[in-house]
Amino acid sequence: MNWFLNMLRTSIGKKLLMALTGLFFSIFLVIHLLGNLTLYGGKDLFLSYVDHLHALGPLIHVAEIGLLTFAAIHVSTGLFLFLQNLQARPIRYTVDKRGGGRTIGSATMPYTGVLIIIFVAIHLSNFHFIDHSRQTVFQAIDATFHMVPYIFFYIAAVIIVAIHVSHGFWSLFQTLGANHPKYMPAIKGIGFIFSLLVAVGFGFIPVYVSFIM
């Protein structure tokens, strides 16, 4: 166990934590998106999906505890790395130009990350920590998405998630050592399409619920 903790204390060890938890959240995003797509099938299909999910019982609690633990690891390690990296250059450049490597996603990881955690808190208080005996999840969604400012807020939030994974996805493979000239272009392509799907797939839901449904 000692060797393991010692390894996690190194820079690559901390990056390993970021990559594994980031991969976990990316998979979670896929499952979450697939589930939410049932909304496009109408209220009944969506509610039956919710029922099926809740029927999993204790498994759901295991998943929730897993998500919470991984979130704690991802956020705390991410912020720790961010602070350490700031300290590694105490005097900044007067003129600082990019050489073409940095992207919007890579340059904003800690900022998009913090915005995501704030969004997740609001998101959970809207749809998760509500009195489920007085309303269905669908009613909560319907009511929330009929507030126009919330639609804008929600779309902005999923775009921020998309920007985070636009760098995060390929980056996690690089961290795990999976950079091969044959496969890296495909991994980058999948990451780009994935972030696009996240933005469009989640982002269109409030528009559909409040204007089309």
């Binding site: 990296n85 990019r98 073409g100 490597g101 890579s106 690089q174 050592g177 950079n179």
Partner: peptide
């Protein structure tokens, strides 16, 4: 500092060292 896979190093290296080495 820690590597964040920003890839600015590869863009500026005078010898064209690839980040596949970092992987």
């Amino acid at each position: 500092g820690n590597c964040s896979n920003e890839t600015e190093c590869e863009a500026e290296c005078p010898k064209g060292i690839s980040i596949s080495n970092i992987a």
